[in-house]
């Protein structure tokens, strides 16, 4: 009975996210080898909404909450950003300002630096703890795959994508992921706290 309510029949036929995302997912990325399991091994160049070029490794040294979006996305992406803002809002006082938030664009064609700047302003993420960046198609693909984020470019130029938010530690190792819109940020916060202790 409950099962009937819980899921539509199509569930039986679907594919899923290979692992249960969560704090337990650390396969091949144990803390004993932070450098080799780090996403900061990706050497692509990204550009911020301020026009500044950087490599991901420049983000090392503090936890980063990151996701991928595109600015012409009306529905899903604003919710991702909203979720990330909520994480920032609920940070305990001792962590305020010590966590970086970063969103990377899927849309190498339409998301110009100006567009990013506009978007940051509209969503009030034009603050020092936030970062919005663009790059070329290869860099986007590599980052999405390193993060385990699925996306597909559609004919009309839009993207289908999932809603993964990842938290990487000071060394760039993915330590926590959540792939749905959570209304509780407790687990994310405690994951961040834990990595700050190390």
């Amino acid at each position: 009975m409950k099962k009937l309510i819980a899921g539509c029949f199509a569930i039986l036929f679907m594919y899923g996210v290979p692992q249960a995302w969560g704090h337990e997912h650390t396969s091949g990325m144990s803390m004993t080898e932070p450098q080799t399991g780090s996403i900061y091994n990706l050497k692509d160049t990204w550009t911020t909404s301020e026009g500044k070029n950087f490599q991901l490794t420049e983000l090392a040294g503090r936890p980063v909450v990151m996701s991928m979006i595109y600015t012409s996305c009306k529905e899903v992406c604003p919710r991702i950003v909203e979720d990330m803002k909520k994480i920032e809002r609920t940070l305990p006082p001792e962590l305020v300002g010590r966590v970086q938030f970063a969103v990377f664009s899927f849309d190498t064609q339409r998301d110009t630096i100006d567009k990013l700047k506009e978007y940051a302003k509209a969503h009030h993420i034009d603050t020092p703890t936030w970062l919005i960046a663009r790059s070329d198609a290869g860099a986007i693909r590599r980052l999405s795959i390193a993060l385990g984020m699925k996306y597909k470019k559609l004919r009309d130029g839009d993207f289908e994508h999932d809603t993964l938010i990842s938290v990487v530690d000071q060394y760039g190792v993915i330590s926590y992921r959540v792939n749905n819109f959570t209304h509780e940020t407790d687990e994310t916060i405690s994951a961040i706290k834990k990595m700050m202790k190390q």
């Binding site: 409950k2 099962k3 819980a6 899921g7 569930i11 039986l12 679907m14 594919y15 899923g16 996210v17 290979p18 692992q19 249960a20 337990e24």
Partner: peptide, 24 residues
Amino acid sequence: HAVIGPGGGAAASLTAPGHSSHFS
């Protein structure tokens, strides 16, 4: 069928050859 949750565990356990998934 003893699991209550979307997919009865299916979504959390898709596993490529040579890999292992776990859920609870």
